[in-house]
């Protein structure tokens, strides 16, 4: 039992690794900010293309979402990080992660937006167009606000997934939270830093997960 506590809940090791972990957390935060914003914007564009009446916009967007829903994000990340240099493109770990997750998240956010936009009735479009608002104005002022409100739980739960996904960046040696924890583990031969990392993820994400469940329950009721 003592052994177990020493291996997983060693407070002095946790305390020692804390500075390293906090700098990792800061990197995770920056990474999250970048990939969430990029994903939200990219996803909206892909969703709009997907709902467009024009074939040349719709087809590429369907292919895009299908491919990136099928490819594991880690595969995409390794492909970009290790593969692009072969094509003569040097890319920093941060940029590789941002690009990989932009592609992956855009596909997922796009599906959420798509469902949201479809959930807004045709009558809303017609009412707005009948008062002389253009397609774009109708989309921005009338449809999107309702669409986003309708799929807020899904947007939120997708964002939780994005935050969890940033832990993959440790694989390409980007010094984010999990990388820092694993580094501390290999230095100390002790798993407590990993437990600390898990606790930090829990503190950040548990409330959001609870919120999502609460939301969904209200929608189901």
């Amino acid at each position: 039992m003592q052994n177990l506590i020493d291996q997983f809940f060693n407070l002095s090791i946790m305390a020692k690794s804390l500075p390293l972990m906090l700098s990792g957390l800061w990197m995770t935060a920056r990474l999250c900010a970048a990939v969430i914003l990029l994903g939200l914007a990219g996803g909206l564009l892909v969703a709009l293309a997907n709902l467009s009446p024009r074939r040349w916009l719709r087809l590429p967007s369907i292919v895009f979402t299908d491919i990136f829903r099928a490819l594991p994000p880690l595969v995409l990340l390794i492909f970009i990080y290790s593969g692009l240099p072969f094509a003569g493109i040097e890319i920093s770990p941060f940029a590789a992660v941002a690009l990989a997750f932009l592609l992956n998240n855009s596909a997922y956010y796009a599906e959420v937006y798509r469902a949201g936009i479809l959930s807004v009735g045709k009558g809303q479009w017609e009412a707005a167009r009948s008062t002389g608002l253009s397609q774009t104005q109708t989309l921005i002022s009338v449809v999107l606000p309702q669409a986003i409100r309708n799929v807020l739980p899904d947007l939120l739960s997708n964002t939780v997934e994005v935050v969890k996904l940033t832990s993959l960046a440790s694989v390409v040696s980007l010094s984010e939270l999990l990388y820092a924890a694993n580094m501390a583990r290999s230095i100390t031969y002790n798993a407590s830093p990993l437990v600390l990392a898990a606790l930090i993820y829990l503190v950040i994400l548990w409330p959001v997960v609870r919120l999502v469940s609460r939301f969904q329950r209200r929608l189901a009721a």
Partner: peptide, 29 residues
Amino acid sequence: DRMRLKVGMVFQGFHLYPHMSVVKNVMLA
């Protein structure tokens, strides 16, 4: 769009914008 401004339409299902107050509904267009 400019002609549609000149032709008002009232629908069977009202179609007010549910995310805006009454006065905002009337102001938007």
